[in-house]
């Protein structure tokens, strides 16, 4: 589904990302881990054509993302609060995204109904604009908006950060379900190794912009990752 070839990004001669080859097949739940500055958000931003690659390219379903915009209809993302429209209520925001993705009100309502327990009564019918919600609740709204319109690729940057434990567990259920039963390709980045190993079939470790581990998740993965990262911090 997503093919990355010779991709690199440098700022003023400093390379922050350099991926020779990375293939993410359709329906995979893909996890990206790495310390700060490892290049996770840079990779996602390149994937969404928010920044330009220095060399190489990414193909999303055979669409060259830096050249064509045809990847947009089947790709959705929540990176940070710049994906929220602060002066809308959560409902209005969902409907707006829905309209952009060709979903009418009833269809959006049907999707939202599935997430009632995820919202925990704090998002819908709140008489509050998104800008006035807490960071955690903003994140919930952004994540759910990324699920509207039957996207085939969903990109979530640090989805677990800022969420309360209950919501983290529910979100893990949602992501697993998307990949397993609906064949959606889900890309997740996280600092939380436990969550990532729990959710993702495959985990890639980035360090200083390079892929240094590419693991199919198994019982031993968490241990391996923990060993790796404690080594990284010691050296």
């Amino acid at each position: 589904m997503i093919t990355t070839t010779n991709l690199s990004k440098s700022y003023n001669g400093v390379t922050v990302l350099n991926i020779e080859n990375l293939d993410i097949p359709k329906g995979q739940s893909f996890g990206l881990v790495g310390n700060n500055g490892a290049g996770k958000t840079t990779y996602f931003s390149l994937l969404l054509d928010l920044i330009q690659p220095t060399t190489g390219h990414i193909k999303n379903n055979n669409v060259l993302v830096s050249e064509s915009e045809d990847w947009k209809p089947f790709t959705s993302a929540f990176i940070d609060e710049t994906f929220l429209i602060g002066y809308l209520t959560a409902e209005e925001y969902f409907y707006f995204i829905g309209e952009l993705r060709g979903q009418n009100k009833q269809e959006v309502d049907a999707i939202l109904a599935q997430f009632e327990d995820f919202f925990h009564g704090e998002i819908l019918k709140q008489k509050k604009y998104l800008r006035d919600l807490s960071k955690g609740n903003q994140k919930k709204a952004g994540i759910v908006a990324a699920l509207i319109g039957n996207p085939e690729v969903i990109i979530l940057d640090e989805p677990f950060a800022n969420l309360d434990p209950t919501t983290q567990i529910r979100l893990k259920g949602i992501i697993k379900d998307l990949a397993k039963t609906q064949g959606v390709t889900v890309l997740v980045s996280s600092h939380d190794l436990l969550h990532v190993t729990d959710v993702c079939e495959r985990i890639v470790v980035l360090e200083k912009g390079e892929v240094i581990k590419d693991l199919a998740t198994s019982e031993a993965t968490l241990k391996e990752l923990e060993a790796h990262f404690s080594g990284v911090t010691e050296s």
């Binding site: 054509d49 947009k72 209809p73 790709t75 940070d80 710049t82 602060g86 952009l100």
Partner: peptide
């Protein structure tokens, strides 16, 4: 400007 990345990654 506050949500320009959203606009640019949506089907606009």
């Amino acid at each position: 400007s506050a949500y320009y990345p959203l606009m640019m990654s949506q089907n606009i």
